[in-house]
Amino acid sequence: MAIASNTDTPTNRGWYKRNEIAITPWLFLAPAILFFAVYVIIPIFQSINISFYDWDGLGEARWVGLDNYVELMDDGAFEVSLWNNLKWLLFYLLAIPAGLFIALFLNQTVAGIRIYKSLFFFPFVLSQVVVGLVFSWFYLPNEGLLSGILGWVGLGPVNVLGDPTLATYGIIAAGLWPQTAYCMILYLTGLNAVDPEQVEAARLDGAKGWKMLWYVIIPQLKPATFIAFVVTIIGALRSFDLISIMTNGGPFGQTRVLSFYMFEKALSEYGFRMGYGAAIAVVLFLIMLFFIAYFLWSMWKEDTDR
C-alpha cells in the first residue's frame, strides 16, 4: 500500500503513542459530541426545566411547578392539537402502502422507466413550503383545480382548507404527496434486492398475485418497511411547515397540531409564553420518546444479531 511509505518509526514512544488506540476515538468524537450536546442534548433538558416556569422569554422566570401541565388539561386548543396529531400519525402511514403500490407499478424494465421513477420521486425534493403553496392553490374554493375537477364530474365546489372538519385531512393529503414518493423509492430499492430464486421457487409452487406479494415479497421488504415506518412517523409528528403555510392553524384553530400550537404559544403574536410552550413540546417529546425507544430497540437487536 502507498501509505506504507508515509510512516515514521516512532523513536520515542510517548504517552500518546502508547495510548493511541484508546485516545484517538475520543479526539475524533469530540467536535461532534460538543456540537450535539450544546445544540441538541442539553436543550432537551433545558426545555423540560423551562416547562416548570412561567416565563415570557425576557423577564424573570417564576417557578410554577406543574401548573403549566395542569392548565394543558383544560385547554381546548391543546386537545384539538393532540387529536390532530393522532390523525396525522394514522393517515400519514398511508404513505407506506401507497408507496409500495407505486413501486410495484414502476418495477418494470420498459424504455424510459428510469425517468418515470425519477419524476415520480420528484415531489420529495420540493420544500414543504412549496408543496404547501401548490396544494393551497389546488384547493382554492372556486378557482382551484380540485373544485374544477369536482365540477366536471358534477359535484359542487368544496373549500377544503376553509372547512374545519376537512382542513386537516386536506393538509395531510398534501403531506402524503412527498412522503409517498419517499416510501416509493425505499420500496423500489428493496424490490431490486428481492431474491429472484425465491420468487421463481414460489412461482413453481403456484404462488402468484396477492399471495406471492404477501408471503414472499413483503417479508423480504422488511428493512425497507422499517425505514419507511420510521421516517413517516417522524414526519407526521414534525408536521409544521404545511400547516403554517396552508392554514396557519385555522379555520378556528382546527388544524393545529402540537408542534404548531407550541410555536404559536411561545413565539408568535399570541404571546411569549415560553414555559407553556415548553410544556407542550415536552408532551410531544414524550409521544416521540415512545417511538424512539422502539426504533432504538429494533436497531440494537439488529446490531447485536450481527
Partner: peptide, 19 residues
C-alpha cells in the same frame, strides 16, 4: 444511540433553549 435518538427528537423541544 445518543446521536440516533437526538436525530429523531421533535424540533419543538429544542426551540426555546436554542433560540
Amino acid at each position: 444511540f445518543m446521536f440516533v435518538a437526538g436525530n429523531f427528537v421533535p424540533f419543538q423541544i429544542l426551540m426555546v433553549p436554542v433560540r
